[in-house]
Design a protein around this nucleic acid. Structure first.
Lengths: 256, 256
DNA sequence: CGAAGGATTGATCACGATCAATCGCGGTGG
DNA sequence: CCACCGCGATTGATCGTGATCAATCCTTCG
């Protein structure tokens, strides 16, 4: 049905970047990248001191992916760790017959591969153009050995990730379709707010099918629930997302 | 409607007084506990050297819980870490209206609280009488600071936990009732095998309701699928569990 | 023996899936 | 410029899996 999975990968000089300069290339990163990082304060890197940050910048590459580019693939040996700085990424697993479960959508500040596994247990691809901070596993681990505080922070982040996974298990296993959609939007609203977004306009760069595969529903059901929420005056649908009319109406509907 | 057995907790030499919230009591076995631990090789502790093991034993208590005793409670501050050595524990979250999602069943060798959170994000209680190795958070963290390798191992274990959570998200979101039950039994069989059980007899100390709340189903559906599996000659139901007739039939039914 | 709680089985219901038609929008080429 | 196409989203009609309601059955335990 979908998933071209074409060989698209890195896009070197951003062709149609919608913001910022088109400068970032994997080679010769100046020491300032981390210090200037927009998402540092919300990411694992917030555990680092200025001088440690300089050391980290030395082993980091600023990379970009085009929309639909595959970032990691399930089963491949995990040689890379990413910290997303711009854009949206989906992580998922596919069953042999094509059924798909999307684990989550990564936003700016989120880490990909923070549990340092041998091989990735999921695939990930870019929904929008994505910019990320890339570390090779080997160099990152060497860096870690000298910075136990960072490992500690990483462990905390993994624990947070686990809590999110548990939240999602509750959602998948014990919530109705309406609660699922409302809960999804409420969660997204909260995450966007923490990284500096507003609480009213919620961009939805993913398709309805992505949302369905995240919530354990079908496209049609997701669509129906959206229009139901519109009829209840909880939100309106706008190009590229939704606008919340009664931001806390969602929490009531999410029930829990 | 159900559970939260009020008073019941530990089994051993219950200290005078009834008291609803006592923790398990140390059985008073000092330095040798870890060295003699039956589950050491399959648990996080396998990362430790003999002398480190001795240090760990010094800060560990051997505790027991009666069946139905609550071990940790969602929201309480996480002051304790357990390594299960005997018995079965269920971890779960309750919604305000009573719906319940069971995240998993902990067996010997499994860790409870390994992500070192501030507060527990779930409740856990003993299904059978449980024996566990208890660490207080503070002492465990001090111990960790001197043993980066253990923290590293803990982080690995957390990553494994996350992978299991993702497996379960796939199951909850994208599998049919029959696939859920078959997948549950197959997963349990594999875990039991890794800790030294056979691959034929699968003890099921949890109720059908527990299984249903783990798989996002109802009791009745779980029961129906079990009898369906019996009719398909995949297993027979015996007191306290099931006996697999065609051990790999389950994997075929679990699909994926 | 009787009571209580878990498990099984049956009858019916309903939520969300499936099948199918249409809409709307953006891109492309005539 | 507009016709056309492709794709995603919406809406409608119908179906089916698993939920719900309900009646035993079975085991354990007092």
């Amino acid at each position: 049905m979908e998933h071209n999975a074409s060989g698209a990968d890195l896009v070197l000089p951003a062709p149609a970047g919608h913001c910022g300069h088109a400068h970032g290339r994997p080679a010769g990163i100046p020491a300032s990248v981390c210090a200037a990082c927009r998402v540092r304060s919300v990411s694992v890197c917030s555990a680092l001191e200025p001088d440690e940050l300089r050391d980290l910048a030395a082993i980091a590459d600023d990379v970009q992916f085009a929309a639909r580019a595959e970032i990691v693939s399930e089963g491949e040996t995990a040689q890379t760790i990413y910290n997303i700085t711009e854009g949206t990424v989906r992580t998922y697993r596919l069953l042999p017959d094509g059924r798909r479960q999307i684990f989550g959508f990564l936003l700016a500040g989120d880490f990909l591969g923070l549990s340092l596994p041998e091989t990735y247990g999921f695939s990930a691809d870019a929904i929008t153009p994505v910019r990320a901070c890339r570390f090779t596993r080997g160099r990152f681990e060497t860096f870690l050995e000298a910075k136990p505080r960072l490992l500690r922070r990483l462990h905390e982040a993994a624990g947070h990730e686990l809590t999110l996974a548990q939240d999602h298990m509750v959602l998948l296993g014990r919530r109705t379709a309406e609660e699922k959609v409302a809960g999804f939007l409420a969660g997204l609203r909260d995450r966007l707010q923490r990284i500096g977004g507003g609480t009213v306009m919620i961009p939805l760069p993913m398709t309805r099918e992505d949302i369905a595969d995240h919530l354990g529903l079908t496209i049609e059901t997701v669509s129906r629930i959206f229009t139901k929420l519109v009829r209840q005056r909880a939100l309106i649908i706008v190009p590229g997302g939704v606008r919340l009319l009664a931001p806390d109406a969602l929490d009531a509907l999410a029930a829990g």
